[in-house]
Design a protein around this nucleic acid. Structure first.
Lengths: 234, 234
DNA sequence: TCTATCGAACGAACACTGTTCTACGGAGTC
DNA sequence: GACTCCGTAGAACAGTGTTCGTTCGATAGA
């Protein structure tokens, strides 16, 4: 014998809820999944909500808006960066390179997230952990404090911009573009430039497109580190 | 005695047209005006069209879409970069710095346009003119061709990312944010970090925020040029 | 136990976005 | 004059981030 009342017709029944309640962490993880699949341009609150089986308005109970969501995603992604076990000052350059390669690897794996990083100063614990390690290495190598601080900026920018650029080529490849043909096209274009205006670029067309993304990235970091080396106080 | 027929009621009268017909150049210039006023986020086809006293659909007769418009705007803006009168190989470093400062000055004057530049390879004549000059200087200094080609990448990235970052601070200032107080907040945050996890960053809080944007930019270019110097064949 | 409060979740709606589609007018050509 | 082409214009489409108002469930307090 049931004493339950029938449902009031204008009340919206909540679905029998087998889903976990939302958390900020769940929102961020869903955001990263959408980013990885659709890129930053495809990252919409509706898609994130859909990924969680809910509606976009529900996300605002956990993040203040899309900007905050992206910052949280960046910080979460930065946590994937693995650092060397311990600093080895005698090979500081090689270790900085390792960290740079690793950061670039992590960011590149998450589409164009580094546009968010280029936006300014991040103070989350994951980002600061990397910074602390890099600063420690630079100081142990004898680089002055202010130089080390500025170097953090420079390395960060080289990593971020390179990862962003790499993401665009990755997206091209995923969209079916033949990237080799693309670079051939750039080379051919340079080779066809008017001689009187662009003699060097024309002559160096092959050189300009030579080298893959990783080779270019390695070179830029190497150049920057050589420059830093000149500041070592000994 | 007039023989003119009265207007057909369902025909849309065109306004007596004192406006110039649209051209691609006019569209680009209007785009730059909107960019300068509202930033890249405020750059919408509707606003550009409004700037020209027309409707957004009219723009598509002149540009294929918003992406193309932004590329054209970047190329037009790059034309504002003034180069030294002639290359002076004996002071190649100082001249590269002058070009970098000038490029940064121009881009910074146009809000966050360099996000477009970070997107990849630009082949417009204005961009190529700068590249030709820089490559010429590097080669005249004795830097190998492949190194010079890669260096173009690196310098471009440092300029673009720095200009983008600067634009965000400019926007903050325009929005009434006290940027000094903002940096004080960053310094205070670093100073309050847990000692056991972030001893160096905590100790260097003041150093991390020391230095204005131009000083930081100059340093990064200097470091990169010192590194390049080590490749000079002599 | 009952009541009040709060926070999470939800759907509808708003103002806005880039772009396409269709129609029209004007200019040029035959 | 008829036809064609191109630029312009407005309406519409599918989509965006966010706000607003409502409901529900959990919790605290009387």
């Amino acid at each position: 014998m049931t004493s339950e009342m029938p449902p009031i017709p204008w009340h919206k029944a909540r679905r029998a809820d087998t889903r976990q309640p939302l958390t900020p962490e769940a929102v961020v993880e869903a955001g990263i999944r959408v980013l990885d699949r659709d890129g930053l341009e495809g990252l919409t609150m509706r898609r994130v909500a859909q990924e969680l089986g809910t509606g976009p308005a529900s996300l605002y109970a956990h993040v203040s808006g899309k900007d905050e969501l992206m910052e949280l995603m960046l910080e979460r992604i930065s946590g994937e960066i693995r650092l060397p076990d311990r600093p080895e000052p005698e090979r500081w350059k090689e270790q900085i390179k390792e960290v740079c390669r690793e950061a670039q690897r992590v960011y590149t794996a998450h589409r164009d997230i580094t546009v968010v990083s280029l936006g300014g100063i991040q103070l989350g614990p994951n980002k600061l952990k990397v910074a602390e390690f890099v600063v420690g290495l630079l100081l142990s190598a004898g680089i002055p404090r202010q130089v080390a601080a500025f170097a953090l900026d420079g390395l960060g920018q080289l990593i971020d911009s390179d990862a962003y650029e790499a993401s665009l080529y990755t997206a091209k490849i995923a969209a079916g573009v033949d990237v080799d043909a693309y670079f051939d096209g750039v080379r051919d274009y340079l080779a066809r430039l008017p001689e009187e205006r662009f003699p060097l670029l024309k002559d160096m067309a092959e050189t300009m497109v030579h080298g893959g993304g990783d080779e270019r990235f390695e070179f830029k970091i190497e150049v920057f580190l050589r420059g830093l080396e000149s500041y070592i106080e000994r």
